[in-house]
Amino acid sequence: MAVLTNSHVTGLTREQYEGMAADLTDKLKAAPGFIAHYAWEQEDGMNVVEIWDSYEQHDAWFDKNVKPNLPVQVIPEKHELTNKVTA
């Protein structure tokens, strides 16, 4: 079953996020196991939720492409999904 990751990045501004997203979106879409990405701004930073086929696929992507660009260390929360329904 698919997995969900939730990363809260304290101190990351919307502008910084949008710059990273512009550079990484096409690569993310092509990443093995990637299903979905959602992000929103909070008072103290950005929150990002992703859905992947496996934790290993997420971690490989995150460690190589995202982690080096973040202003702070982030350890994503991970949750195995019980169900997934898509349109």
Score class of each variant (00 low, 15 high):
13 T>M: 03
43 E>L: 10
25 T>D: 04
40 W>K: 09
81 L>M: 15
42 Q>Y: 08
48 V>Y: 04
22 A>W: 11
67 K>A: 13
31 A>F: 04
78 K>S: 00
77 E>M: 08
19 G>F: 15
72 V>C: 02
84 K>P: 00
71 P>I: 11
57 Q>Y: 03
73 Q>G: 04
14 R>I: 14
8 H>F: 14
42 Q>A: 15
64 K>M: 01
14 R>N: 12
20 M>K: 01
13 T>F: 06
77 E>Y: 05
53 D>V: 11
64 K>G: 03
40 W>C: 12
32 P>N: 06
44 D>F: 04
82 T>E: 11
70 L>H: 08
84 K>Y: 13
69 N>G: 15
47 N>F: 04
86 T>K: 07
60 A>Q: 10
23 D>T: 12
8 H>S: 10
1 M>A: 12
16 Q>T: 14
84 K>S: 11
38 Y>R: 04
63 D>V: 13
52 W>Q: 01
20 M>V: 07
43 E>T: 13
78 K>W: 00
76 P>V: 05
67 K>T: 13
28 L>A: 03
44 D>G: 10
52 W>F: 05
62 F>R: 04
25 T>N: 02
2 A>K: 10
63 D>S: 15
43 E>A: 14
38 Y>M: 09
20 M>H: 02
33 G>T: 09
58 H>I: 03
27 K>I: 02
81 L>S: 08
3 V>L: 08
47 N>G: 06
1 M>H: 12
69 N>I: 12
38 Y>S: 03
59 D>Y: 12
12 L>Q: 03
58 H>K: 00
5 T>D: 05
27 K>D: 03
19 G>W: 14
78 K>V: 03
41 E>F: 03
71 P>V: 07
3 V>F: 09
68 P>N: 07
22 A>I: 06
